[in-house]
Design a protein around this nucleic acid. Structure first.
Length: 873
DNA sequence: GCGACAGG
DNA sequence: CCTGTCGC
């Protein structure tokens, strides 16, 4: 078999690792996340591929021959952040300890070294694997070489071979540079030919074979405009192709022996200890054997000790009480509000044990869970609270929730599975995938040990990031409130719901008949593809907007087409009604609980990047309100048995008030202190008239401007929202900033902070990392900038209402009211109340919400009560 | 996975 | 800007 040669793009992998992992550091304050990520990836590659030889290439300096060809090459690339550049030498130390050759050459990029090595290695009879995150390397693929392309994160890679490349793009990998020559690459500042994107480029290359052949046959290209561009920019295309071409003939001598590797385990041990890569340290002997040639360590074994007798349980409970700490992981099943325990794994300080529910050992669990002298630690406390509710067990406060901590440390992660957390925070300690366990018991035993080990690490990280107060005072106490709300559920009038659905069916049938008649034939109106063909090919209506896959037919487009054809108005009504019926009537029906007759949503506390809650199965945070027909849906939400009214309490303009406070803008503060209508005031400022002269049109545009400011405005977005030109929208924004100077200053300061620190924070120190804030890609960077201004505002609003929820919940309990909170909709709380409590509860809720924080402007809460959710609005 | 659309 | 669900 031919020898396997692995070539790694060191620069690319380090970048990838840096942005994929939260900013970890060791006790000395040295950043280590990129080193850790890189090392993990490398060790995994060594273990999986077992290459015979290996080389790692780095870029050196920023000027290459490409700058002689084109001075602007990679011109607008931002400097590497300090936290990253300081880790490059550390990575090289790791490579040295592994005995792996590092290559860098002034005047060349890592790509060129990789290209040259790969050609030479193939000539020497090797199979080559190139590992990188840079798609440019795809041009190096051949019959004896493939590319492993890093995906998002650090664990997954895409294997690209000659075959898979051709399948995906329809051209040979060697033609990749021709595509790039035509389409250019904004991130490398390679110009390409204007008007040619990836699709056109791929088409042209598959048709003509190469840039040169294309340019020689321009007259055969379809499209006048395209031909003209190709003629005007022919030199640009040739130069761009040259820029994109990786050099494969650098002066490098090659022999396979040169690139063997020989790990120095002592040195590695030292390094890993210094970086505090605890788990890597532990895995070292298993990977390479120790220096003294001891046998590799045994893989971690899971001891399945079950506690099934009263005696054993009592003994265990005594030991745990003695320690004062209960670390547990529940195994549950069922749906709200009847979730139940299958068993519970717990950590006794030395080993994990499992207690099956219903066994003679179970009694001690009930005692332990409700022992308020124990400090309790778990993963996802809400699951435990819900299971206790379902099993009718009392549960005292849980003080540590690993899931919540991980979320606060990095709210943008997609999920927080324990095995990932172990990989990130314990440097992969005994990291096994949950699927590798033969049963849930074994997985639970592994999990509880992971929780025990993660706790101190996450806690320290939380303190470092100043997140402890937010965690202790808001997120943790909120868990119990959310669990209660989920278990209460909300009553829906099932009979009316069925009636309404039936009524809508009839109306929708009628609309469909009209649509088919006007269209001349029946078709699937729900298919945007079929609808597009009808509107834009059969009826020849003007194409307003396109999507990635075809014509856009969204409401915005349809409204512009309204004058052209009677079909359009009917389509809009059909769309609205079918949405209401499918999502809010038929979709809701199966989620009405057969026993409680109520709908029990799930509030997710660890999903959003900003700190808001989300609601699912069903989502009760997007029940219609804006349209008349939609509002009817809210009439279905009614007080349940034993209750008389629905009460809603919502913050007025919470986000703009927060903006006023955080920016300290005089005009904004004054407006709120005088309880002025904020949109009218903004209209007066932006259009330079007095408040009494503001027209409805002006107010509505000003309202859009205010939304835009909160969302992180772009002239493009605003122009779309209010239907004016981009230029005019730009002028509105400009005059807004001229009048609200404090706001402008506030935004500038936040963006500067984000650029410097890589994250933004809310008033309560909630944090969100924005790695793209210094990106060389304009779109990515602009997006990050808008996020940078939006997150502190949206996130602070989330902090405030979360605090209000806790306060309202506790005060209702304290005063022994029957009335209770059922839902939260971002700036609104929904309660069900009993007749005699309407007055006091309304006062209590208003007071608690308004006093949740003290800002430079008053917080105003409007409370309404009615027989249904619609009436309470 | 995408487009459309419901909410904030 | 932040979400979740439906239907294709």
């Amino acid at each position: 078999m031919s020898p396997e040669f692995m070539i790694i793009d060191g620069s690319s992998l380090i970048h990838r690792a840096f942005y994929a992992l939260p900013p970890l550091s060791n006790a000395a304050g040295q950043y280590t996340n990129a080193v850790y990520g890189f090392t993990t990836m490398l060790l995994k590659l060594l273990a999986d591929l077992k290459p015979d030889a290996i080389a790692v290439a780095f870029d050196k300096g920023r000027i290459t021959f490409r700058n002689e060809t084109y001075a602007e090459y990679k011109g607008h690339r931002k400097a590497t952040p300090g936290e990253l550049s300081e880790q490059f030498p550390l990575v090289k130390e790791v490579l040295a300890a592994l005995g792996i050759q590092v290559l860098e050459e002034a005047g060349y990029e890592a790509d060129d070294i990789i290209g040259t090595l790969s050609v030479q290695a193939v000539q020497a009879g090797c199979q080559v694997t190139i590992v990188t995150g840079d798609r440019d390397a795809l041009q190096l693929i051949g019959p004896y070489s493939r590319v492993l392309l890093t995906k998002k994160g650090i664990s997954d890679m895409e294997n690209v071979t000659e075959e898979t490349f051709r399948e995906k793009y329809g051209i040979a990998s060697s033609q990749f540079i021709d595509v790039k020559g035509l389409m250019g690459d904004t991130s490398d500042n390679i110009p390409g030919v204007p008007g040619i994107g990836e699709k056109t480029a791929l088409k042209l290359v598959s048709e003509f074979g190469s840039v040169e052949n294309l340019l020689a046959n321009i007259e055969r290209v379809a499209g006048k405009k395209l031909q003209e561009n190709l003629r005007t920019y022919r030199d640009m295309a040739i130069m761009s192709k040259k820029l994109a071409t990786i050099v494969c003939d650098m002066p490098l001598a090659f022999s396979l022996d040169q690139y063997g590797y020989a790990p120095d385990t002592e040195k590695l041990k030292e390094l890993f200890a210094h970086f505090e890569f605890k788990s890597l340290l532990q895995r070292l002997p298993a990977m390479f054997g120790s220096a003294a040639g001891e046998p590799a360590a045994e893989p971690v074994r899971i001891e399945t000790r079950r506690i099934e007798t009263q005696e054993a349980a009592q003994e265990l409970a005594a030991a745990i009480r003695c320690k004062g700490r209960l670390v547990f992981y529940p195994v549950t099943e069922g749906v709200l509000p009847a979730i139940s325990f299958n068993g519970l794994a717990l950590w006794d300080g030395k080993e994990a044990v499992y207690i099956p529910a219903g066994s003679d050992g179970w009694s001690c669990v009930a005692e332990l869970l409700n022992d308020d002298r124990l400090e309790k630690t778990t993963y996802d406390a809400k699951v435990t609270y819900n299971a206790c509710y379902g099993a009718d067990l009392a549960c005292s406060e849980i003080q540590t929730d690993i899931l919540l901590m991980a979320y606060l440390l990095d709210p943008t992660a997609v999920e927080y599975p324990l095995n990932k957390l172990v990989e990130t925070y314990l440097s992969g300690y005994a990291s096994l995938h949950p699927d590798q366990y033969k049963d849930r018991t074994a997985a639970a035993l592994w999990s509880v040990e992971a929780i025990a080990r993660l706790q101190p690490v996450l806690y320290a990280a939380l303190q470092d990031a100043k997140l402890e107060t937010l965690y202790r005072e808001i997120e943790l106490p909120l868990v119990w409130v959310l669990s209660s709300m989920e278990n209460y559920g909300i009553t829906v009038d099932r009979a009316s719901l069925l009636g309404m659905s039936e009524g809508l069916s009839v109306r929708i049938e009628g609309l469909l008949t009209e649509i088919y008649q006007l269209a001349g034939e029946p078709f699937n109106v729900n298919s945007t593809k079929q609808l597009g063909v009808l509107l834009f090919e059969k009826l020849n209506l003007p194409v307003i907007k396109k999507t990635k896959t075809g014509y856009s037919t969204d409401a915005e487009v349809l409204e512009k087409l309204a004058g052209y054809h009677p079909l359009i108005g009917i389509l809009l009504e059909y769309r609205m009604l079918i949405k209401l019926k499918s999502t809010y009537l038929d979709g809701l029906l199966p989620l009405i609980h057969p026993v409680t007759r109520r709908i029990h949503t799930t509030f997710n506390q660890t999903v959003t990047a900003t700190g808001r809650l989300s609601s699912s199965e069903p989502n009760l945070q997007n029940i219609p309100i804006r349209s008349e027909a939609g509002r009817k849906i809210r009439e279905l939400f009614v007080p349940g048995e034993g209750y008389d009214y629905i009460m809603s309490a919502d913050y007025s303009q919470i986000e703009l008030r927060i903006l006023a406070h955080m920016s300290k803008d005089n005009g904004l503060i004054e407006a709120f202190n005088h309880e002025q209508d904020i949109h009218t005031r903004t209209a007066a400022e932006v259009f330079g008239v007095s408040m009494s002269e503001v027209t409805a049109e002006m107010r509505s545009r000003a309202k859009a401007v205010n939304f835009g400011i909160v969302y992180g405005i772009s002239d493009y977005g605003l122009s779309r929202d209010i239907g004016v030109s981009r230029k005019e929208a730009g002028q509105y924004i400009e005059s807004y900033f001229a009048r609200y100077h404090g706001v402008k200053e506030f935004i500038d300061v936040i963006i500067r902070f984000a650029r410097q620190n890589g994250y933004v924070t809310t008033m309560f120190d909630r944090r969100r990392y924005l790695p793209e804030i210094n990106s060389s890609n304009f779109n990515q960077r602009s997006f990050a900038e808008r996020t940078a201004m939006n997150t502190p505002i949206q996130g602070t609003a989330a902090d405030i209402i979360k605090k209000a929820m806790i306060d309202v919940y506790q005060e209702l309990k304290k005063a022994n009211f029957t009335s209770r909170i059922l839902l939260q909709v971002h700036d609104e709380l929904l309660l069900e109340v009993v007749e005699q409590e309407v007055e006091p509860v309304s006062r209590l809720v208003k007071q608690a919400m308004e006093q949740a924080v003290t800002l430079l402007v008053p917080m105003t809460v409007e409370v309404k009560t009615g027989k249904t959710w619609a009436a309470a609005k």
